[in-house]
Design a protein around this nucleic acid. Sequence first.
DNA 1: AATTTGTTTAACAATCCTGTTAATGACAGA
DNA 2: TCTGTCATTAACAGGATTGTTAAACAAATT
Lengths: 207, 207
Amino acid sequence: MTEKEDKMNVEKAILDAATEEFLSKGFSGARTVAIAEKAGVTHAMLHYYFRTKEKLFECIIDTVIKELIDSVTEAYKRQDASLSFEDRVVAVMNAHLDFIIAKPQLPSFLFMEIFPSTENFKLIKEKASSALGSLNTQLKEALESANNNEEIDNISLPMLISDVVTLNAATAISSQLATKLLNITKEEYVAMRKQENEILIRKRLKK
Amino acid sequence: MTEKEDKMNVEKAILDAATEEFLSKGFSGARTVAIAEKAGVTHAMLHYYFRTKEKLFECIIDTVIKELIDSVTEAYKRQDASLSFEDRVVAVMNAHLDFIIAKPQLPSFLFMEIFPSTENFKLIKEKASSALGSLNTQLKEALESANNNEEIDNISLPMLISDVVTLNAATAISSQLATKLLNITKEEYVAMRKQENEILIRKRLKK
DNA sequence: AATTTGTTTAACAATCCTGTTAATGACAGA
DNA sequence: TCTGTCATTAACAGGATTGTTAAACAAATT
């Protein structure tokens, strides 16, 4: 079945190239000819497989969103139930950061391209709702029971999530500036921020 | 001098329209005809005054950057010297947030359009270096003397600045999601985040 | 009034970019 | 081997978008 493999290879090559192009340049900045070139196919092939630029874009958002959601839910599932609430939050936060760092353009792409568009946002909300819904209730329970057992400072769940997402997203985005602004490598900067984010969250949760 | 006023009006109208268009859609998403229309002039006028889309873009980055830098330095200058280090940091942070919130697309625009481009980044670094340099030394002195008088937890200056910028930028960006995700207004969300950011920073600075 | 200077308009040119199509090739099943 | 289907290519069509130009116009200067 070399034909089917070939077909998958072509499709995958286009998808990979498209992901890179869309994430780095945004929808309007991306060029379909550039994607085709990067994928090593004629640009007619791109239209043959995905019809339009919009459809191709939708395909890559779908997978990107799926990967993002999975990374968080997986990280939470893997948690040791015996850990304290504080330790669990930190562990999920770090797993989330590791995923984001692998695709550092993702946060600004989401903010620029996906969130402002009501339609795309609907899509992401649908995909995320079930996963985030259960994560939410789990966290809620953990926070409530933690308040009984541990000494947790008063904090609302939305603000806690906002803190984590905020710190991680900004870490990923600003990591691209690290080498340009400070005289350190991206990896050094990320390591510093990881430590700093952990300090911030731990201090925040302590009474 | 109605002619010069008129000229200024046309120029300003184009610049204002361009700022809105570029900030919300990015360079490649922006359309010069849309800018001209918004400004109420023919699109030939746009080229007459600014020659090219690129040149117009450079003009608006210049002013945007200048306003951003000024907002921070002004906020720092206005500070009461009798305040504690912690209070001063919080005051500057809040002033910074107020400015950003007025142009909520600014952070994602900077991250998407300016920072990735080495050339544009050079520009912003030049413009910011003198202002940020003096701010930096002022903060450094304040931090050192604070460590003698007050009880400040160990933190490096880059990380402190990174914390503040990070939290504020993310607040502005995510505020656009507030109404879509949580059932609250943007203003309510910003107020909540402002409070939360202040708690985070104060706790971070305390030993 | 004539000239000059700078502003504005409308039409047009040129290019870039997306998407199509018709022709060709490859290959599986009848 | 013939036929039909799918993959691929090259060339092109259409439209959007940026940028130019020539002519009209307004205002100031001589």
